[in-house]
Amino acid sequence: MTSVSMRVNGADVRADVEDRTLLVHFLREHLRLTGTHVGCDTSQCGACTIHLNGEAVKSCTMFAAQADGDEIVTIEGVGEPGRLHSMQAAFQQHHALQCGFCTPGMIMAGIDILRRHKSPDEETIREELEGNLCRCTGYVNIVKAIKAAAES
């Protein structure tokens, strides 16, 4: 057991976790932030993407204990119904989701892409989405939504 404390979606949290607890499981099970999803066990799908100290990371690739002292934002901290983040709004507007399972990870990745590229072209967005799988949409509308969010 290790004691960890971190700031998650603006609130301080402290907990005792098993050493082998992954950050994604800590978020989902201890904090009940179930918007962050698990789609694989080899760090390939990106469904678990969150922001760690402002950068997109796959929360299945690190232990909760490694995030001690860090600042984390999950999909729940990005915006809420009635006060959507422009990326969230763009995803709805452009029908960038079907089953919605990859969506939180895609939105977190999308926000990170715009942090690093002011107005990325389609090719850049497609390259940048390398780490995120979607089985439903064929990506066309995800790319469109990220582009639209950049322009908004």
Binding site: G35, I75, E76, V78, Q88, F91, G100
Partner: peptide, 8 residues
């Protein structure tokens, strides 16, 4: 969509 894009 709203519930999916907000993690709900």
């Amino acid at each position: 969509d709203v519930r999916f894009i907000t993690g709900r």
